[in-house]
Each structure stands twice: as C-alpha cells, then as structure tokens.
Amino acid sequence: MSRLAERPLPASRERPPAPRAPVRRSVKPLARWRRDRLLLLLAAPGVVVVLLFHYVPLLGNVIAFKGYQPFLTIAESPWVGWDNFRVIFSGDPVFVNALTNTLIITLIQVLFVFPLPLALALLLNEVISERLKRTVQSILYMPHFLSWVIVVAIFQQVLGNAGMINAFLRAQDLETFSIIGVPELFKVLITSQVIWKDTGWGTIIFLAAISRVDTSQYEAAAMDGAGAVRRMWHVTLPAIRSVFILLLILRLGDALTVGFEQIILQQGAVGATASEVLDTYVYNHGIVGGNWGQAAAVGLTKGVISVLLVLGANKLAHMFGERGVYQK
C-alpha cells in the first residue's frame, strides 16, 4: 500500500544525452523469443508478484458487487448489484462520520502540514554554514524512518497524562494538561505527529529544487536592490513552483487517505466518532465486522475517486502550463 508520495520525486531532470543501450531491432517473433527469453525469465518473479498482489486483488474488487460470506468463495457468492454501495449514498451515519473525519483531517493537513516543509526548506537554505546545515538536516530527517508505532509510543510518553511534560509540570506544582486520549483534540494530536515525523523529510525535494537555482540570479537581484525577502519571492519561489504543484497533486490524490496506521493505533483511546476515517472504516466494518461486500464497495469507490483526483489535478496543472506528474 505504499504510495508514490512516500518519497520525493524531482519534477524534472536534465540529463546529458547518455549513450543508452541500443534499441533492439524488431525481428521475427520466434527469433525475438529466443533472444529475449533470458530477460523474460529475469522479469518473471517480479511480474508474478505484481500480477498476484496488484492485479488479482484489483479484479477481486468484484466482491463489492457480491454478497460475500467467508465460507463461500468469491465465485460462489451471489451477485447483489449495487446493493453494497447503498451504504455510501444512503447517509448511513457511521459512514458519513468516517467521510467527514477524513475530509476534515485532509483539509487541516493541506492547510497546516503541507506548506511547512517549504517554509523549513527556505529557513534551512538561509543557513550559511554548510556543516551546521547538514547537522540540522540529519536530525530533522530522522523521524521519517521511524514506524508509526514508535512515533505514537513516543508521543504518549512525552505528552501523555503520565508523560514527561506532565511529570515535569506536576513536579513544579503547575497545572497539567491532557491531549492524549481526548476526542476533541484527536485531530490536533495526529496532525502534530505528522508534522513531527515528516516535515524534515519533506524539505529534501524543495532543497534540491532550490539548489538548482542559478546563483547569478540572486546576485543580479541583489544588484537591482532586492532585499532578502524579495529575492526569496522573485527568485527562489518561482524556481520551486512546479515542484510545489507536483506535490500538491500527489497530496490531492491522497485526499481520502489519511494516516491509517497512525489512527488505528490510537483509535481505542478516543473512540470511533472522533477518529474513524475511510480506511479504518473499511478495516473495522469489513475485516473486523465481517461486512465484506460493503467495506469493499467503500474501498473501491475511494480508490476510483483517488485516481480521478490525481488525473483531474494533473489536467488542471497542464492547463496552467505546469508539467504535472506525467505528460501526455
């Protein structure tokens, strides 16, 4: 379930025209087979895995149209048409709650989390000492590599009622606070966890884009009397605009996907009303609750909408003259 956005992608790349392996001339099929069969053999294990764990499950989405029961096979289960999708359109409160939570969390994160790496990258870019900059980067990238279980555990230990900060406040006879296990603050909590984990990592791609800016542009701007702020506005920001848009497109494609592991780990403490999102709904309703067909219908709808969002956002980017994720 790893997504494209997991790792930074450069928006564009200029490569000197390197001599590549020559295109193999098309010959007769049998000769081609004899020539390339070793290559096909090499590709085979990977292809089997991709087919078995991407394309077979893709077809397995037919259970969204079936009344699946665990003791029947998918083929044996009766067709039920669009029945399973009714849960999406009938205003079922549990589903609506999951959808609302998902959209609210996405909105919060696009507004407050998404711009942070850019801001941090601009800050880091102004650090003159190369060594200091690298040290700070090493520290800030680190949390990205920790699992969500570890991040959640660390947050509990630091911010929990018996956590580090409250223990300190208690020792000073000060008022303690609680954010862990409070339903009203759950969205704040998970947002702060995302910020802690991934803001540093998110700067990489912006720093790479900034480093491509021709320094003579800064010098020219300075000669023309531009101060630090105007240089940032007129030189740095235009240079990273296409990267920013690319990442925004990818983020939009993930609009319906919000921190599944992160939320499932902390759901017990705050209850479903505050924390259920679409992915946890599919898990709780389908795998735990046994409503396989309905959960698959929700998952399928979510997947289709996500693809449409990426394609739509990409189209929009093209209309505004940007490169987007892919080109026609």
Partner: peptide
C-alpha cells in the same frame, strides 16, 4: 500503473 491505483484492503486480504 500499480503506482496509480492501490487494489484495496479487502481484496488484498482475500487474496
């Protein structure tokens, strides 16, 4: 194409 579309948790589990 596998990067664009994830098949979903339920079908994956059943496979």
């Amino acid at each position: 194409f596998t990067m664009l579309f994830s098949p979903g948790m339920i079908p994956m589990y059943l496979v």
